[in-house]
Computed example of a mutant assay.
Amino acid sequence: MDISVVVPLYNEIESLPELTSWISQVMDNNRFTYEVILVDDGSNDGSWEMIRTLNKGNPFIKGIKFRRNYGKSAALNTGFDAAEGNVIITMDADLQDSPDEIPELYRRITEEKYDLISGWKAKRHDPLSKTIPTKLFNAATRKMSGINNLHDFNCGLKAYRRAVVKNIEVYGEMHRYIPVIAKWAGFSKIGEQIVEHRPRKYGTTKFGMSRFINGLLDLMSIFFVGKFGKRPMHFFGAMGTLSFLAGTIITIWMIIDKLRAISNGEHYRNITDQPLFYIALVAVILGSQLFLTGFVAELVARSAPERNKYQVEEVI
């Protein structure tokens, strides 16, 4: 099969007939073999009944229904598991992504051998309340991930080589950072394509300020797990050592300073009366706790069932 189109959706009953008809037309015109996987993330507006109807009219349209709303990341991850195509295309169900972009995305994956192509909506039709947080996230993600050639990490329209989606896991709000997850998994050939951003035709946006906070936390999680997931002691141990050494150095300095004052006959107040004493005490205790945290994290990592699971590209 050439292409699997994975579409996560939540309460998008009005747009589904037009979207699936458009996708099918593009596929037929380009003679692609395909499947469209519609993942219903707990809709309550009749979207699943519409998916059933669409499936009866076109067997290439498939559906997966969640019992409740889990979020876009869960829908994408489930869709990735079910996808059978050599190239996987993801897009939103609100008709703001154009299926006409599919042939070029497919060509770049198959001919230019990219692992992942991310869409860039250079001209957006969103309110400032959505575009400004998006720009801030994109700038922070570029800085932390080192993927400097992407302008829009959160664009729903993306294309993947099959091996990518079968070797990554998406959860929480991490669909925003799939290129980062792919890079940490060893898929480093990541490109970008300017795509059309169409005005929303039906329904309302699902964007909320809670996603701004969750997205930031998930970015920090990706950065930490990707860098220190298999060696947590390198992070906690280093931080603990620095903190412990800082407290120890301050303590030694205070002791030496007191001995000097005593030897010169100078008045010297008790060490416990000085703010530096409590700073040193906190630093030593914090350093010890961080070090112990590192040991515990190492024990957990070594006991994990995937502790020795690594990405192998080829075996001959």
Rank of each mutant, 00 (worst) to 15 (best):
T53N: 14
L9Q: 05
P17W: 10
I23F: 06
K56S: 12
L16A: 06
D45G: 09
D41K: 07
R52C: 12
S21P: 04
E14R: 07
E49L: 10
I13A: 13
P8H: 09
S47M: 13
L9V: 14
I37T: 04
S24C: 10
V6W: 01
E18Y: 14
Y34E: 02
P17I: 15
V36L: 10
L19P: 00
W22H: 12
N11W: 04
S15N: 07
D28V: 13
T20V: 15
E14S: 13
N11G: 06
P17C: 09
F32M: 11
F32R: 09
N44C: 12
W22E: 09
G42W: 02
L16Q: 06
V39H: 05
S15V: 05
D40P: 09
L16K: 03
E12H: 04
R31A: 09
L9D: 03
R31L: 12
S47P: 15
I23R: 00
D28K: 13
N11R: 08
Y34L: 10
Q25T: 10
P17D: 14
N29A: 15
G42H: 06
S47D: 12
S47R: 04
G46W: 05
I23V: 15
S24V: 15
N44Q: 12
Q25H: 13
L9P: 02
V6H: 03
L16N: 07
V7L: 12
G46V: 10
N29L: 15
N11H: 11
L54T: 00
Y34K: 03
K56A: 07
V36S: 02
M27K: 03
P8S: 08
S21K: 11
N55C: 08
N11Q: 12
D40N: 14
V6N: 00
E18S: 14
Y10R: 12
N55K: 15
D41F: 10
N29S: 12
M27L: 11
V26G: 01
D28T: 15
F32E: 02
D41A: 02
D45F: 08
V39L: 06
N44P: 06
W22M: 11
N44W: 08
P8T: 02
S4Q: 02
I51F: 07
S47W: 02
V6P: 01
W48A: 01
E49S: 06
N55E: 13
V5R: 00
M50H: 04
S47K: 07
T33E: 11
V39I: 14
N55M: 14
D28C: 14
S24N: 09
M50S: 05
I51N: 01
E18V: 12
K56N: 14
L19N: 02
N55W: 04
I23T: 04
E49I: 11
V39W: 04
E14Q: 13
W22I: 05
V39F: 08
N11S: 11
P8Y: 03
S15K: 05
Y10W: 15
W48K: 00
N11K: 09
V36M: 09
D41V: 00
Y34T: 01
L16R: 00
M27W: 00
E35M: 03
W48I: 09
S4C: 06
V6Y: 02
